[in-house]
């Protein structure tokens, strides 16, 4: 465990809690893509099946359970408790365009052809694109609430910190997880455009709105 990894995990957790608090306090989930949140719940579900087969550390187990709970609670808030405020008309990204190629790829490129390992690979590939419905929604409506942009910032920061973690682990432990690294780079690239808008607009006190 290095400082980049722990900061990455904290940043990931902070992003999820921020989103939950935003929805809970405003009793409103307008502007949040329910599809992205379903994808994240699917990511954690397929990745953390090893909770039952493999013990890494108490930290690892506790964080996995918290991530799962947060993901499902968020989905429940959007499609259950506050569904009247859910802006489904702007959440129109076609999930099959992501799920079909990613399912195919996880069968083709994996570390071993076993059900758990294919599901793990699927979750890694899926996480790298899971934010696309959210970014698509923002580009469609042309704006995002400031708190939503903070959520996206911490989610992107988590990915960037994991890249630093992998560089660190490569040099100190000779650890190199090719599938995770390639997907992580792809995922981080998706946030670059958003990072630019975040720094040039949101941090200067302006609302994020697209021209």
């Amino acid at each position: 465990m290095n400082v980049f990894r722990i900061l990455g995990d904290v940043s990931h957790l902070l992003a999820m809690i921020l989103l939950l608090l935003k929805i809970w306090r405003s009793k409103c989930c307008t502007g949040i893509s329910g599809k992205s949140q379903i994808l994240f719940a699917l990511v954690f579900t397929t990745r953390y099946l090893d909770l039952f087969t493999n013990f890494v550390s108490l930290y690892n187990t506790v964080m996995k359970v918290i991530f799962l709970l947060c993901a499902y609670l968020t989905v429940y808030m959007i499609y259950g408790k506050f569904r009247k405020t859910f802006d489904s008309e702007n959440d129109t990204f076609r999930l099959e365009f992501l799920l079909v190629p990613i399912t195919g790829l996880s069968f083709l490129e994996n570390y071993s052809f076993t059900p758990l390992e294919i599901l793990w690979t699927f979750s890694i590939y899926l996480e790298s694109v899971a934010i696309l419905p959210q970014l698509f929604m923002i580009s469609k409506t042309g704006e995002a609430e400031t708190i939503t942009t903070h959520y996206l910032f911490f989610l992107g920061l988590y990915r960037a910190l994991y890249l630093a973690n992998w560089i660190w682990r490569y040099h100190t432990e000779n650890f190199y997880d090719q599938i995770a690294v390639v997907s992580g780079v792809v995922q981080t690239i998706f946030y670059c455009d958003f990072f630019y808008l975040y720094v040039t607009k949101v941090l200067k006190g302006k609302k994020l709105s697209l021209p």
Binding site: Y111, E117, D177, I179, A180
Partner: peptide, 10 residues
Amino acid sequence: LVAKTPHDEL
């Protein structure tokens, strides 16, 4: 590809 199981990251 090198196997990296069990996975120790989140």
